[in-house]
Simulated assay, not measured.
Amino acid sequence: MTSPANVPHLTPNQINALVVLMVEARRVTNVELRELAGFTLTGQDNKKLVDLGLVDTDRTHRPFAHELTDEGWRVARQLHTAAPPKQGGSTTRSLFVVLSNLHRSLDRLRVSHGDFFKHTEATAPAPTAATMTAPKAATTAATAAAPAAAAAPAGAEVEALVRSAYRDLATAPGDWVGLADVRDRLTDTDRAALDAALRAMVGRDDVRIIPVANTKSLTARDRAAAVRIGNEDNHALAIGPA
């Protein structure tokens, strides 16, 4: 297996750092890295990952803290296609075997890496365009459209609008609803503000926003309504019971 052009050449430590940050799916300090994996991300390893745009390092206070960027998520997802570094030894080669099998399993389950690691407790099957709940047929004039929003609504206000639209659209908590239908309910809401609210909601325990794996089933309307999260276009929303 040869390393694809879109995966940079990385040292074993740099690869290990990307994998740990992917699995943790959050900002991790050097102290936590040492406790979790027995190493810290410093010196040239840190510099290269930052220079490549793969890791964002917060140096405003110690211990330094690291988090994958969107590009870092992309490279971490693609590591299974790359050849293990020759200097990595058996441990690094074994890691690549795990990554390859993980990728095949997630692909079979139609679950993205970001959704899997951020929502490992979720058990509902991933949606397809055909299984996303259709909008309820009966709505009142008051609920058919979202309330008019201010030019720059606060994030909490937009999240409240999203949750209200979801309740109108879903037949039961946890059902998958297409973002295209959500956007139709919130036509008066600024698109950038809505996207920002959706990205923030991914961190909520009761919220899932994921891609539809079978992209051939997506309509042009679905694609236009997608929100970019973790370097992926996401098309479906589910909100569980409060």
Rank of each mutant, 00 (worst) to 15 (best):
M201D: 05
R223C: 07
E121G: 04
G240P: 03
R191F: 01
P12R: 00
T128D: 07
L54M: 06
L169E: 15
H66L: 00
P12Y: 00
Q44S: 13
K118M: 10
R167C: 12
T139V: 15
A196D: 07
L68E: 06
V98H: 07
A83H: 13
L79V: 05
L79W: 04
R59H: 11
E157T: 14
L109H: 03
V177Y: 01
D175S: 11
F39G: 05
A152C: 11
P4R: 08
P173F: 12
V212K: 02
F64R: 13
A83Y: 09
A83F: 13
P147A: 12
A129V: 07
I229D: 00
L36K: 10
H235K: 01
A151P: 09
E157Y: 05
A197K: 00
T91P: 01
A160N: 11
D190R: 11
H80P: 06
R223Q: 11
L79R: 03
A238V: 00
H9E: 15
K48P: 01
N30G: 10
D195L: 01
R223G: 02
T128A: 06
A200E: 14
R104I: 02
S100N: 06
A122H: 07
R34F: 13
V19Q: 10
T140I: 04
G174K: 11
G230A: 04
L54E: 01
H113S: 02
V182M: 01
N231H: 09
P8L: 11
R204S: 14
A226T: 04
V111M: 13
R62A: 09
R228A: 13
D233K: 07
L10A: 09
V98G: 10
F39M: 09
K216Q: 15
A170F: 03
L33S: 00
H61F: 03
D222P: 07
S90M: 10
H103K: 03
A236Y: 00
I239V: 09
